[in-house]
Each structure stands twice: as structure tokens, then as C-alpha cells.
């Protein structure tokens, strides 16, 4: 647990606006990215990010420090996303190809085309996972939370997170293998 972040929360509890602003600066991009991947579009993600922070400020006095600030905020964001999804009857995910809109500064233009194909197929397959598995993958792999932080954010046990991650990886592996199976190749070759 980051003591600095906890001190920021304590300062915000005391009403220090500068500490609250610092909390926004540290976490709003990560929360936006998390919600952007889940919600599927920019406008909804920005709206959900605002709703998340609107819930954070009244909940500050209830933050007891049993989990990290990051997992606490991600937990609130996850609840906000679930409420929004239920309210909009979006029980089935509508994945968009968010990764195509994001410039990747880490890779050079000579990145192998095979890696790009794998990443695109993989991210698409993640968005088609079951909601529980998808949220777990987003928090742990995309957001970089530890197992314990992911468990705190989702309100489940760490062993459950491990099980979900294991299931998710196996399902992703199976789906990617299906995509390149001979039958699918044969079907593609029969297209006019």
C-alpha cells in the first residue's frame, strides 16, 4: 500500500483541496482508461469517470485504509460501470476496437505485423469474455493492479481472481486457436 497515497486521502478527508486535486491527477487517466475499455466509447467513459469521482468525495470518510487507494478507486469505478450498464440495459458487451484509436508510442513502425495481429485478436477476444472474467483481466492486466488489489476492487477473494485469470487465459488461447484453425482457413478460401 502506498503510504503517500494514503496520506493524500487523509488530507482530503481533512478538506484539503490540494490533496484532492493531487488524487485526481494521479488516478483520473487510469480510471478513464479502465472505463473507456469497458464502456466502449469516449463520451460514456468521460461521463463515468466524473461519476466515479463524484462518488469518491462523499465516500472519503469511510476509507479505512484496509486496501490501497488504487484498488479502492477502481472498485468504485467498477460499481459505477455496472450501475451504468444495468441502467442502459447493456447486459451484453459491445466491444469496440479501442486499441486502433490509441497511438502506441512504445513500438516503432517496424513492429512485426504478426504481433499487431495477435494483439488485435487478443484484445477483441478479451472484450468478448464473460463480464466477471473481463473485469478481472482489465483490472489485473490492463490496469496493472496486483492480485490482492484486483480482489479488493472486485470484492472477491484473491483465489477467485487467480481462478478467473486462469480461466480467461485458457479461453483466450482457445479462441485464438479457433481463429487460425484449418477449417476457418478453408471457409475463408471458399469466399467468392
Amino acid at each position: 500500500m502506498n503510504a503517500d497515497e494514503t496520506q493524500l486521502v487523509e488530507a482530503a478527508k481533512r478538506g484539503e483541496l490540494r490533496a484532492a486535486t493531487e488524487l485526481v491527477d494521479r488516478f483520473y487517466e487510469a480510471l478513464f482508461a479502465f472505463l473507456r475499455r469497458l464502456a466502449g466509447n469516449e463520451a460514456d467513459a468521460a461521463d463515468l469517470t466524473q461519476k466515479t469521482f463524484a462518488r469518491v468525495w462523499p465516500a472519503l470518510p469511510r476509507f479505512a485504509g484496509r486496501s490501497s487507494v488504487s484498488s479502492w478507486l477502481h472498485g468504485i469505478a467498477h460499481h459505477v460501470y455496472q450501475d451504468w450498464r444495468r441502467a442502459n440495459h447493456r447486459l451484453e458487451p459491445r466491444p469496440d476496437e479501442w486499441w486502433e484509436d490509441c497511438p502506441d508510442p512504445r513500438h516503432t513502425p517496424d513492429r512485426l505485423a504478426a504481433d499487431a495481429d495477435l494483439a488485435a485478436a487478443l484484445y477483441g477476444a478479451v472484450d468478448r469474455l464473460e463480464p466477471d472474467l473481463r473485469s478481472t483481466v482489465h483490472l489485473h492486466h490492463y490496469q496493472g493492479l496486483t492480485l490482492e488489489e484486483t480482489a479488493d476492487a472486485l470484492g472477491v477473494a484473491a483465489s477467485t481472481v487467480k481462478y478467473r485469470l486462469r480461466s480467461a487465459v485458457q479461453q483466450l488461447q482457445a479462441r485464438l486457436a479457433e481463429k487460425t484453425s484449418p477449417s476457418s482457413t478453408l471457409n475463408l478460401s471458399r469466399k467468392p
Binding site: 478513464f32 468521460a46 469521482f53 490509441c102
Partner: peptide, 24 residues
């Protein structure tokens, strides 16, 4: 998965969030 790209928010989002801070 760990190397997944991070979507960037609109630059105006930070100002909105800071303006909406309502501390208890």
C-alpha cells in the same frame, strides 16, 4: 495483455474533475 495500450482522456476532463471536487 500487459502491454495493452492505454486510451488517453480528453484534456478537458481533468479540469472538469477538479472543478467538481466536493470534499466532505
Amino acid at each position: 495483455l500487459r502491454q495493452a495500450l492505454r486510451p488517453r482522456p480528453n484534456p478537458g476532463l481533468r479540469r472538469q474533475l477538479v472543478d467538481q471536487i466536493q470534499l466532505p
